[in-house]
């Protein structure tokens, strides 16, 4: 099977989706497309079903949070064509209050847990996901920890004084914690 060039793929995609693809970038060895979230699933399905390209391996899927950007919530998906050894990365953005993307589970079964993890970390909802619930954290957690506004530290530590690094002992002593409760 002849290996398609990256230009061929880019041309085929822009022919098919036109203005749905906002831009193509190249970062190191990767070609990255920023796409409209409306075509998120179609683009992966097109690449999957295209006999010439055969992007049939979902490498990874994750969220990114850019708190200062106009569209802070980003979803990144990466596909691999094992036959041709080509890799592509797609990004889509959203600025909604309740972030919702379409689910890739219809194309790749592997997306199931990756999307659950993304939901768990960032709170993105995936439309069409069969069983969207938290996967790594406890079910009754009331926030999405990977968003930049939440701290990494455990709130129950009272023995650390990291004033130099932005954490005061008084924030974490037992009394204050109890009062907060």
């Amino acid at each position: 099977m002849e290996k398609p060039t990256i230009e061929e793929i880019i041309n085929a995609l822009s022919e098919k989706f036109g203005s749905g693809i906002f831009e193509w970038n190249r970062e190191y060895d990767f070609h990255i497309a920023t796409v409209d979230k409306q075509i998120w699933v179609q683009i992966f399905r097109f690449l999957y079903e295209n006999e010439k390209f055969r992007f049939r391996y979902l490498t990874t899927l994750c969220g990114v949070h850019y708190p200062d950007a106009p569209q802070p919530f980003c979803l990144v998906g990466q596909v691999h064509s094992l036959e041709h050894n080509l890799r592509l990365r797609f990004k889509t953005f959203s600025n909604e209050h309740h972030v919702e993307f379409d689910s890739l589970t219809g194309v790749f079964p592997a997306a199931n847990w990756m999307e659950r993890e993304t939901y768990d970390f960032y709170g993105y909802r995936f439309h069409g996901h069969p069983d969207l619930k938290r996967i790594l954290n406890v079910d009754d957690m009331d926030y999405f920890p990977m968003r930049k506004e939440y701290p990494v530290e455990d709130r129950t530590r009272y023995d650390k004084d990291d004033t130099m690094f932005g954490r005061k002992r008084s924030d974490f002593d037992r009394k204050t914690l109890m009062e907060k409760k």
Partner: peptide, 16 residues
């Protein structure tokens, strides 16, 4: 003590 994992998901020592 929680070790290097001073993070939201880890219990900071089982003596809690």
């Amino acid at each position: 003590s929680g070790g290097i994992f001073d993070s939201y998901s880890v219990l900071q020592g089982i003596d809690h």
